[in-house]
Design a protein around this nucleic acid. Structure first.
Lengths: 113, 113
DNA sequence: TGATTGTGTAACCATTTGGTTTCATGTTAG
DNA sequence: CTAACATGAAACCAAATGGTTACACAATCA
């Protein structure tokens, strides 16, 4: 049996935004979208331990913002543009809601005149 | 002297994504983009205390995702589409970085052939 | 083989977060 | 004026977060 630990869409969205709410993690996403890198290569450029960077990569992976694939003794990290795109779409829906309100206000003014 | 408690752009971005990483807060943003509401009106629809909802509104306000203006004894909350738009742009930059990599790979294949 | 490198993970710690209850204060309704 | 309502804020608490050090293990190099 494949136990698909049931996780809601809400929680998945929570994880994406939570993962993006840290400058180091945003930088890792940026870098690994630009070019893949091993965790050690990533860690070399931050003022914190390897273990800390490893945890950040774990948070990003749980949010599906990066993928981690083995290559020899290394783990290659790649950014996932699809998850970024989904987050953008979500924010786009918020903007649409706002535009909807503006349209309704416009309609009210139109009735007035 | 106007003490502008110095806050970095990074921290401002942190706050926006952090604020969006909670389903209740996303719902408050959605609702107040659609139509303004008092904190009490908002709180009536969530299964938590007024104080908890008040805190969520505080987090959203600190991220500039909503604004709070007094009206009589109420505080009217309105969603701020501009901050949403800025967050979208940020994610858009990430996508551009990825597209840049694809373009470079395309160039490599072109050289190959 | 042995040393080095890259990774995974556990145990620990301080701080932040997200909730609670309680109480004070300002504002409006009767 | 008094009661009810809306808000603000403090004190408290459990859990999550973001870092550390230490150690085990796998893979590669010489």
């Amino acid at each position: 049996m494949v136990t698909q630990s049931e996780i809601s869409e809400q929680q998945r969205v929570d994880r994406v935004f939570r993962a993006l709410a840290d400058a180091t993690r945003r930088d890792i996403v940026r870098r690994t979208l630009h070019a893949e890198a091993s965790i050690s290569e990533l860690a070399a450029d931050y003022d914190m331990s390897f273990a800390a960077v490893r945890k950040h990569v774990g948070v990003l992976e749980a949010a599906d913002l990066v993928a981690r694939t083995p290559r020899g003794r290394e783990r290659i990290v790649r950014g996932n543009p699809e998850t970024i795109r989904r987050a953008m779409e979500l924010l786009g829906h918020f903007e649409q809601i706002w535009r909807g309100r503006v349209d309704r206000l416009d309609a009210l003014f139109a009735e007035d005149s």
